[in-house]
Amino acid sequence: MSQQITPYLWFDGQAEEAATYYVSVFDDGRILNVQRYGEGGPAPAGTAMIVELELNGQRFIALNGGPQHTFSEAVSFHVSCREQSEVDRLWKQLTADGGEPGQCGWLKDRWGLSWQIIPVALPEMLGDSDPERAGRVVRAMLGMQKIDIQGLRDAYDGRD
């Protein structure tokens, strides 16, 4: 069965640039299709109207819809990472060229789209049945922008 729900991202002229960038960031990313505006459209002929892309098996659609709508933190994309090196790489790439680091693993990319770059170890530690251990992890996380797995483990084990 094909993907039934697809995130639809509204851009102001940067849909193709953003899609091209996103597929370069994720190892299994690819552009699936680009539909372009024709003569008499709201953008110059040849400008991308809709860009369909896939990131790690998840399909997205990017639309050049104009300046009427912008992204907010009300919607974000959660990326599960196995290793610190993956957290570091994604954080660096997605905050590059005007992106903004946030708290607790959240960031905004240069287009204002919010991402959560979260190691799989975080929810595992937060779900510990020992409330003291989980609490130490929460306190450590609240002091972080980019999540540091070793910092979380140190807090988890009481070495904070």
Rank of each mutant, 00 (worst) to 15 (best):
S2G: 11
Q4I: 07
Q4G: 09
I5E: 08
T6G: 07
T6P: 02
P7N: 08
L9W: 04
L9H: 08
G13C: 05
E17C: 00
E17Y: 04
E17V: 03
A18T: 05
A19G: 13
Y22E: 00
Y22I: 00
S24H: 12
S24R: 14
F26H: 03
F26A: 04
D27K: 15
D28L: 00
R30K: 11
R30W: 04
R30I: 05
L32H: 10
N33G: 07
N33H: 13
G38I: 02
G41R: 10
G41N: 11
G41S: 14
P42T: 06
P42R: 10
A43T: 00
P44M: 00
A45H: 05
T47R: 06
E52C: 01
L55P: 05
N56T: 09
G57F: 03
Q58S: 13
F60Q: 04
F60P: 06
F60L: 11
F60M: 07
N64A: 10
N64M: 09
N64G: 11
G66D: 10
T70Q: 14
T70K: 14
F71D: 09
A74N: 15
A74H: 10
S76W: 00
V79P: 02
V79C: 04
Q84P: 03
S85Y: 04
L90Q: 10
W91G: 05
K92W: 04
T95S: 09
G98N: 10
G98V: 01
E100A: 13
P101D: 12
G102A: 12
Q103I: 03
C104I: 01
C104A: 11
G105P: 01
W106G: 06
L107Y: 02
L107A: 08
K108G: 02
W111A: 02
W111Y: 15
Q116A: 12
I117F: 09
I117G: 00
P119D: 11
A121N: 08
L122V: 02
P123W: 09
E124F: 07
E124D: 05
G127R: 11
D128A: 13
D128H: 13
S129N: 14
R133H: 06
R136I: 02
V137W: 06
R139N: 10
L142M: 15
L142T: 11
G143Y: 13
K146N: 02
I149W: 03
I149A: 14
Q150N: 11
G151L: 08
G151I: 03
R153K: 14
D154I: 02
A155E: 00
Y156G: 12
D157F: 09
R159W: 04
